[in-house]
Structure formats: C-alpha cells, structure tokens
Design a protein around this nucleic acid. Structure first.
Lengths: 113, 113
DNA sequence: AAATTAAATAAGTATATGCTTATGTGATTA
DNA sequence: TAATCACATAAGCATATACTTATTTAATTT
C-alpha cells in the first residue's frame, strides 16, 4: 500500500496537515488514540472547534472514530491510502506523549478498562 | 542538517505545500530551475498570481531566486533547514518533467546558454 | 423517566487566502 | 534614450478557514 499519490490529492492532505492544531492531533493519535474531551483539555479551544477539526480529518479518511461508552475515540486510520504518506510526514515530529502524561497527572485521562 | 522541526514550523511549511499550484511548482523546481514566465505558461494563471506564490515560497526560505539576464530563475534552496523535510514530502510525487518537455516542444523554454 | 455528560451540528463572524486588474521597477534592445 | 520585456507590488474582491455561541443528539447515571 505504498502507491504514490497524485499532486492534487497530496496537496489536499498537506492542507489538512498544515494547521498546528490538526498536525498536533495527528501526531498524538499516531501515538495513542484519544477522545474529544481529552483534546478539549489539551488544546485551549472550545469543544466545537475540536469537533470540527476532527470532522475534517474523518471526512478525508485520515482518522477513525470508535464509540466506547459515552466517549468517542479517534485514532489514525492505518488502512487509509494516505497512512504511509502521513507517517512519513510526521515521523520526525517531537513526540507529544508528554501532553497525555500531563492529562494523566491531572486525572483527566479517559480510560475504558 | 537533518534536525527535526517543531510542530508549528512544520505546520507552516505544510500549509505552504498544501496548495496544488505551489506543490507542483516545488516538484518542478526539485527537478529543474524555472523562471517566472515558464510558470506562467505552465499554469493557466496570471503572472501576478505566479509571482505571489513564488514570493511566499521565497519569504519562507524554501526557494532561491537568481537573476540571469532579464529572467529571474527560481530553484529549491538546498541549504534551507527545511530542504530535507520537503524532499521527503515530495519525493514520491509524479515527476513533472513532462510539463517542461511540453514547453520545450512549444519553443517556450527559457535557456541562458 | 429525568438529569447529566459527551459530542455533533448550526449559524454567525473575523481573518486569511488566492485570485484579479492596474501600476511600478529593473534589465535589455532598438 | 525611448520602447520593450520580465517581474514585482498594490489594491480590491470573493471565497475559504477557523473560530465563537447556541442548540441538538445520543449515551449514561440517578
């Protein structure tokens, strides 16, 4: 699944990645799945703003959503035809694990165990 | 010079690449330098529109300009700290050499020899 | 069943973006 | 030195983008 993407498709993906909030979300999701309220806590931004970013990513097929209980978890869609390209783009970005660790420290991490 | 870029810087670069015209220009420049009037012939777009795209790329340091005679040639700036990242992003894009070959066939290619 | 929590959607708004046309600037040629 | 060619810049405009607040939907808890 390493088929080269055409220029227009690639430009559209890059436009989606070319936003600080979405790019950070994608890096986070490449490390852990995450639910909406966690993103709301991580970014100083309203819940609808977060939802709208996630919707763009979902509409493009970049991310998956999965409801678990009252939460909806988002994760990178590893079966997307863009997945390997996205991995290439984000692989050297600084890990965002520290953000989730901060959430855990504040007792704001959501777990469905 | 393979230093990882931070998220904000990367998002800004990706935003620049996330436009079909600029992404195509960058792929072309990764293969050949090119002057403004060639881009104008290649894209069905006004000369100021082309100039404005090139200015954004130049302001970010992604491309170099070099005047030769009455023409100004643009090329990928290989000394930019973003160069290797950009190469990574564009390396699998389809070659745009055919576009310059079409220009050559039409006698519209600029050469300073 | 009512209240609560999580998330999506709708509608409005300010700013950013990408183009256009008109004009200015610098090098070349007649 | 006047005209021309290549390109940049300025100004204006339509659309896109990223947010906001208000409301709706869906699941959970009491």
């Amino acid at each position: 699944m390493n088929g080269a993407l055409d220029i227009e498709t690639t430009a559209n993906i890059l436009k989606l990645l070319g936003d600080k909030t979405r790019l950070t979300m994608i890096k986070i999701m490449s490390e852990h799945e995450c639910c909406v309220c966690e993103f709301v806590d991580l970014f100083e931004m309203s819940q609808p703003a977060i939802s709208q970013h996630l919707r763009k990513l979902k509409d493009s097929g970049i991310v998956n959503e999965a409801r678990r209980g009252q939460w909806i978890f988002y994760s990178l869609n590893q079966t997307s035809s863009y997945y390997s390209f996205i991995q290439t783009v984000i692989k050297d970005l600084p890990s965002q694990n520290f953000k989730l660790e901060e959430l855990t420290a504040q007792g704001k991490r959501i777990c469905c165990d």
